[in-house]
C-alpha cells in the first residue's frame, strides 16, 4: 500500500510548521508507523535542529535530486529515539531554485512504497519553495495562529492548495492562549473557523515546554507532562481517523463546550 503524502504549510512564517511536522512525525512513529519527514525549506533548514539530528547530516534533498548520492537511503537520517522515523534534510547552502517540482515528485514516488507517511515541511511564502513542497502532496495540513495576519495567509494558502487540487486541507490552530480568548483579546476558534471553514484537526495551546523541547531537539509529543504534547498526540490520532474530543484547555467548561460544538457541529 502506498503511503500518505502530507504537506504542512501556512503561508506566513513562524507559526509553527516545523514544530508541527516534528511532533506529528514523532507521534505517528510512536504508533509504529513508518514515517519520513522531508524538509523542503532549502537554505533555511530547521527540522534537523528541532529533531536534534543536525550533526548527522551527510547528504541532503538537493544531493538526492541531483543524484550526487548513490541512493536516496544514503540521505535518510534515522531518528535517534525511534527506529521507524526518518528525516530527509534540506540543503543549507543552496536556495529554493536548486530543485524543481518534478524532481520532488520523483523523490516522493520513490519513498511512497516504503513508508506509511511522508510529511513535507513547506517553507513560508507562496513561490518556488511552496510549489516544490506541494507538488508531490495529496493531502495538506494548514497551520495558523490566532492572529489576523496568520489567518489571512492561511486563507490564501487554502485557495492555492485548491488550485493544486488539494481540496480538503486540515487545520491546526497553534499557540492558542485560552485566558486571552476568554477576555476577548484573541481571535477564538469560532472566528477562525468562520473565515477558513475547513476541518479542524487540532488546537495546540501556547506552551513554554515547546520552546524548551525545540531547543533540546526533542519533540514535545514525547513529553507526557506537556499540554502541547498532548494536543499533538490527539492530532496524530485524528489524522489516523480516530474520533478524539477536543481537550479542555485549563478545564474551562465554556470553552470546552465550544470545542465540542465545533467537533460535532460540522
Amino acid at each position: 500500500m502506498a503511503g500518505r503524502v502530507v504537506v504542512v504549510t501556512s503561508g506566513k512564517g513562524g507559526v509553527g510548521k516545523t514544530t508541527t511536522v516534528a511532533n506529528i512525525g514523532t507521534g505517528l512513529a510512536l504508533r509504529h508507523k513508518k514515517v519520513v519527514m522531508i524538509d523542503a525549506d532549502i537554505g533555511l533548514r530547521n527540522l534537523d535542529v528541532v529533531m536534534g539530528l543536525e550533526n548527522r547530516i551527510v547528504y541532503d534533498l538537493v544531493d538526492v535530486a541531483e543524484k550526487t548520492c548513490r541512493s536516496i537511503n544514503k540521505a535518510l537520517i534515522k531518528d535517534k529515539r525511534l527506529s521507524n522515523l526518518f528525516l530527509l534534510p534540506a540543503a543549507q547552502t543552496r536556495n529554493k531554485d536548486a530543485i524543481t517540482p518534478d524532481q520532488m515528485i520523483e523523490i516522493v514516488e520513490g519513498l511512497k512504497e516504503e513508508f506509511d507517511y511522508i510529511l513535507i515541511d513547506c517553507p513560508a511564502g507562496i513561490e518556488r519553495g511552496f510549489n516544490n513542497a506541494v507538488a508531490a502532496a495529496t493531502e495538506a495540513i494548514v497551520v495558523t495562529t490566532p492572529e489576523v495576519s496568520a489567518v489571512r495567509d492561511a486563507d490564501r494558502i487554502i485557495g492555492l492548495l485548491q488550485e493544486k487540487e488539494i481540496y480538503e486541507p486540515l487545520l491546526v490552530l497553534n499557540r492558542l492562549r485560552p485566558e486571552m480568548v476568554r477576555k476577548g483579546d484573541m481571535m477564538d476558534v469560532d472566528d477562525i473557523n468562520d473565515i477558513l471553514a475547513i476541518k479542524l484537526l487540532g488546537i495546540v495551546p501556547d506552551d513554554e515546554e515547546i520552546i524548551i523541547s525545540t531547543n533540546k531537539g526533542e519533540p514535545a509529543v514525547l513529553n507526557s507532562h506537556s499540554k502541547a504534547g498532548e494536543a499533538f498526540r490527539n492530532i496524530v490520532k485524528r489524522l489516523e481517523g480516530e474520533e478524539v474530543p477536543f481537550m479542555p484547555i485549563n478545564g474551562e467548561t465554556g470553552l470546552f463546550g465550544k470545542f465540542l460544538k465545533l467537533m460535532h457541529g460540522k
Partner: peptide
Amino acid sequence: GTVRSGQRMENEGDIVVKGDLNPG
C-alpha cells in the same frame, strides 16, 4: 465556493457567489 484571499473574480455582467468573499 468561497472566494479566498488573493483570488479575484471578474465578469462582464452580474456575479453570484455561492459562499463567502474573504478578506483579501
